[in-house]
Nucleic acid binder design. Structure first.
Lengths: 358, 358
DNA sequence: CACTGTACTGGAATGGATTCCGGGAGCTCA
DNA sequence: TGAGCTCCCGGAATCCATTCCAGTACAGTG
């Protein structure tokens, strides 16, 4: 410590354990006293303000070191009006797709100094709005939204009342203020799948889709219908419902019991896939001999199923990082943007020509 | 409004849009002014303090309604010293097991009024400590910990310096202050698996385990060795390593190339399983004819693999809710507790008697 | 009537840090 | 030597709600 330190109005007498490991943490006040300067000076040093002499910086840093001072983020948040926190409203983090998105987003946000709050709406539309309000109360700086129902008036109204930037993740809400969005090009992926199936000779396709209140379902439905219509004699049936195993199984049952059952079925989600496969197994139908199967979005072991599962795939981790980047851009003052990421079909053994007698 | 309202020092003149949807939110100060009372009274009404007259309550509530006032949680947090927030340090949320735990924990915490911050250590031990410090700075009320490395000095020291309650999730850290913990009874599950395999005739078992720096691995290794030792002539090889596909594949390769290759292999984690299966597929080994396979922890499609995968299973969602409950108990002033939840083996087609010539 | 409660209520300190503003010190240049 | 500047620094207001403390008014009681 320099001799000048003697100038201090309060000489550094008490040794004070460097890191007072207890709850009685030192505040900026204590630092200022110990260094014999004003709090404003401490603040300036710590925030890298230019109007600070080298001597001052040294004195303050020494005091900070000695006291093991760490700024109270709550006070900073209150004063600055920014929390360096973003909220992620997700339907269900246990869905691998969303978990990957969350991972990508969290990593990118953290590197930029933001923390991520997470809530699961458990696919209940009314919880979406509740959680958005909850985040608002906690004064998050921005939102990442993968809401369960785009049409919920409550959600839309609540969102409209929030002046914070938000990024929609494969969702399409009718908001007054435009929001950023990361979308998937379901159209292309689905079209490729249909072309592949039709190429194999299929004429009766089915899509067991999730809720029509979210963009992926609508896009997939629109895409399969359009793609089917492009071929003479190709029919397609669509069964929308919940993103659940139950719906997957029930819809499959209906389809197979219908007058002209499909020879190929596309599952519109992880849970749905489980339902579809379960129903097929129950009827002892073999894939792909009796029926071809395609699924949307990767599942961990899909490659080891025999036959391997054909998949309309996208990169959820990248969706997450992209969403984070869009949000950071807006937090930095940028304009809302929309980014569309690819979804592509990869063929596999679960697709084969239909049975002759089908 | 009652006639007495005329007493107000500042009559409610300006209509003021009920919900000023902009950023210029009304504070408690405005509410107090409009109601013609002191801020302390507003606070009392809002916090349900008993010393409040009916008239006062009505006046204040009216003003609150008119201004669309919502308390600023940041100010509350600062003043109260509690953030109603808990931090969850997780290795990798994209791991289905952890995602389920997170889901269970988040739902339970939210119902109790807590929000959950999430960070992914991406299985890097040094990030664990960093994230714990990060949460400390954000003044979380408690921590949920599924750290990547229990032996990290940095992690232990950092944790020791934090006076906040924490709950270990299937981890066993050497802390000064005892912490609550939710553990899995790997011992039982693993023993059951070994008994089953031995019963089928297997004499050479292998465990492709994850990092020995986390409890699940250590417990599983200890259990398999003990269970094997209980039978004459039953050998078991263990290959610990990272929780990655790469390690899974590499370890499997080593095992199969060894002098006396195992006739049954147990994969100690989701990623490891993928590596194991990939290596088996590469060698065109058939399950269970050429080799039996067991995995730890459920994976979504495991039931549809053919043959279906035998699994040492536990209920991750319940682990999450239990962890949340333990934390809430501590936040409510209770003592640290340890809860052990079951892990049980379910047999399936992937296990069969070994080949004669093995 | 004086006294003790009781039931509320207002004022001010508090929790920590940020930031605007004013002013002193020292230097330059006329 | 004095005006004008730059460079730094301290003081005080501010962010917003909580809570302790003191005090008022009114009812009840001896």
């Amino acid at each position: 410590m320099s001799p000048r330190a003697a100038r201090s109005s309060r000489p550094p007498d008490e040794p004070l354990a460097p890191a007072t490991s207890l709850a009685d943490r030192a505040g900026m006040r204590q630092v200022a006293d110990r260094a014999g300067v004003a709090m404003s000076s401490v603040s300036r040093v710590l925030s890298g303000h230019p109007d600070v002499s080298e001597a001052m910086r040294a004195r303050v840093m020494a005091a900070v070191e000695e006291l093991g001072y760490e700024p109270n983020m709550l006070a900073q948040m209150l004063r600055r009006g920014a929390t360096q926190t973003v909220g992620f409203v997700v339907g269900d983090i246990s869905n691998p797709l969303l978990a990957q998105i969350a991972l990508g987003a969290e990593v990118a946000l953290r590197e930029a100094g933001y923390a991520m709050l997470l809530t699961n709406s458990v696919n209940e539309a009314n919880l979406d709005a509740t959680h958005i309000r909850l985040f608002q109360q906690r004064r998050v700086d921005g939102l990442l939204l993968s809401v369960a129902d785009e049409t919920s008036e409550d959600t839309i109204a609540t969102l409209g009342r929030i002046p914070k930037p938000s990024v929609l993740i494969d969702r399409d809400l009718d908001l007054d203020e435009p929001a950023s969005a990361v979308l998937s090009d379901h159209q292309t992926g689905m079209t490729q799948a249909v072309e592949h199936l039709v190429g194999l000779g299929h004429r009766r396709l089915a899509l067991v889709a999730g809720s029509p209140h979210v963009r992926p379902t609508r896009e997939r439905v629109a895409a399969i219908e359009e793609a089917a219509a492009a071929h003479r004699g190709v029919l397609c049936q669509v069964r929308s419902g919940a993103f659940t195993e139950t719906h997957g199984a029930a819809a499959t049952r209906e389809l197979l019991d219908s007058r002209r059952p499909p020879t190929a079925v596309i599952a519109g989600g992880n849970q749905i896939l489980v339902g579809v496969l379960r129903e097929l197994a129950r009827r002892e139908l073999r894939v792909p001999d009796d029926i071809s199967v395609v699924t949307c979005d990767d599942v961990p072991l899909a490659e080891f199923l025999s036959p391997a599962l054909a998949t309309i795939r996208r990169d959820p981790y990248e969706m997450g990082t992209t969403a984070a980047q869009l949000l950071l851009a807006r937090l930095g003052g940028g304009e809302p943007q929309t980014v569309t990421l690819p979804a592509t079909f990869s063929a596999a053994g679960s697709c084969a020509p239909p049975r002759r007698d089908a």
